[in-house]
């Protein structure tokens, strides 16, 4: 059992209920314990930074200070929500990078008898922990009901893979972690080109037409890729694409119905849990009908890996560039 500090974030209690339920259900099989920081506060999402800088950072830093106090054998702080993850790492980074600014933030924290030493915590997103710490081998070994036949579009949204505060943990535009995780669950992972495009963020609130075109692009691309549902790691993305899909359809006179669920939900499903136990049914675009597509037929023995044999195919087509094997780093 490895233990981590845990910052749930506000949406886990409301719009992200199914994220919370499914996360709580899968921690035991994954062999991790999440220790929630006591009395944490909202990270301010993308709103506070837009109004003023220092108060916004101080608000976030209060959580870091609380987490630092709770550090006991672990200094990894896990956040399941993208905006929270980003804000926490961004604050840690800003305080470490610019010592004078760090001192200012601490000056403010001192008013609440708190203090945070920059870089004393390592802030990581839940997906990163599942893939890198728990490992796909463990995940695979827990699968009792492989999601065979279910076509999933991995969708990360923008804020988790993107800026490299705290050291970028994956490729900012074409990360493959979620794809590999879903494949480990036995699902069919479709090539989803927009996996790190923005869901519109707070635009659903302040500039709906902008947001609607973003949502439409995402949903449309998932449909074209043949996905049964989208799988995300971010409550904001889930909320925008799920809850605003109806309004978006009304806006464009379209009739898209693309369910979107959290990666912890499909993990729970593959671990043999009942759909409702891991929050299926809470989404406005119901994902349950698609679950019927999971086939229980045993898969034929995997073909032995094809050896790349030199040979000249018939026809005029020119060869494609040779790509590095998956995971091979080219930089």
């Amino acid at each position: 059992m490895s233990e981590y500090l845990y910052y749930p974030g506000c949406s886990m209690d409301s719009s992200g209920r199914s994220y919370r339920d499914s996360l709580e259900a899968v921690t035991a099989p994954l062999g991790i314990t999440l220790r929630e920081i006591d009395d944490w506060n909202c990270c301010g999402a993308t709103e506070y930074l837009g109004l003023s800088r220092l108060p916004a950072y101080a608000l976030i830093a209060r959580n870091l200070a609380l987490a630092e106090q709770a550090r006991n054998g672990t200094n990894t702080l896990v956040a399941p929500c993208s905006a929270c993850f980003l804000n926490l790492s961004k604050t840690n980074h800003a305080m470490a990078e610019d010592a004078a600014f760090g001192a200012q933030v601490n000056d403010a924290l001192a008013a609440g008898d708190l203090h945070y030493d920059p870089d004393s915590l390592r802030i990581r997103h839940l997906l990163d922990v599942v893939v890198r710490e728990v490992g796909l081998e463990t995940v695979r070994s827990r699968v009792t009901r492989p999601l065979r036949g279910l076509k999933l579009a991995p969708y990360l949204g923008c804020m988790v893979p993107r800026p490299d505060y705290d050291g970028r943990w994956s490729d900012p535009e074409h990360p493959s972690e979620l794809d590999r995780l879903l494949a480990a669950l036995g699902a069919e992972v479709v090539d989803y080109p927009l996996k790190t495009e923005c869901c519109g963020g707070h635009m659903t609130q302040i500039g709906p037409s902008t947001a609607f075109s973003m949502i439409r692009r995402l949903v449309d691309a998932a449909e074209r890729a043949g996905a049964d549902m989208m799988v995300t790691i971010c409550p904001m993305c889930q909320m925008n694409i799920d809850a605003f899909q109806g309004e978006m359809n009304a806006h464009f006179h379209t009739s898209h119905r693309m369910p979107i669920v959290f990666f912890t939900q499909v993990m729970g499903l593959a671990f043999g849990m009942a759909p409702e136990a891991v929050g299926f049914g809470r989404e406005l675009v119901d994902a349950r009908p698609a679950l019927a597509r999971i086939s229980d037929e045993p898969v034929p023995e995997a073909e032995p890996a094809r050896v790349r044999r030199p040979g000249r195919p018939k026809g005029p087509a020119l060869p494609m560039p040779q790509m590095p094997e998956a995971g091979e780093v080219t930089r």
Partner: peptide, 30 residues
């Protein structure tokens, strides 16, 4: 390939400069 958003290697009709040199060369593959 190091700039994934340019799609080289994923999108067939993205070529590099050296590939184009060979394409346009009378002694090249086409």
């Amino acid at each position: 390939r190091r700039i994934p958003q340019y799609g080289y290697g994923r999108l067939p009709n993205v070529f590099t400069s050296l590939e184009f040199e060979r394409l346009s060369n009378a002694a090249g593959p086409t």
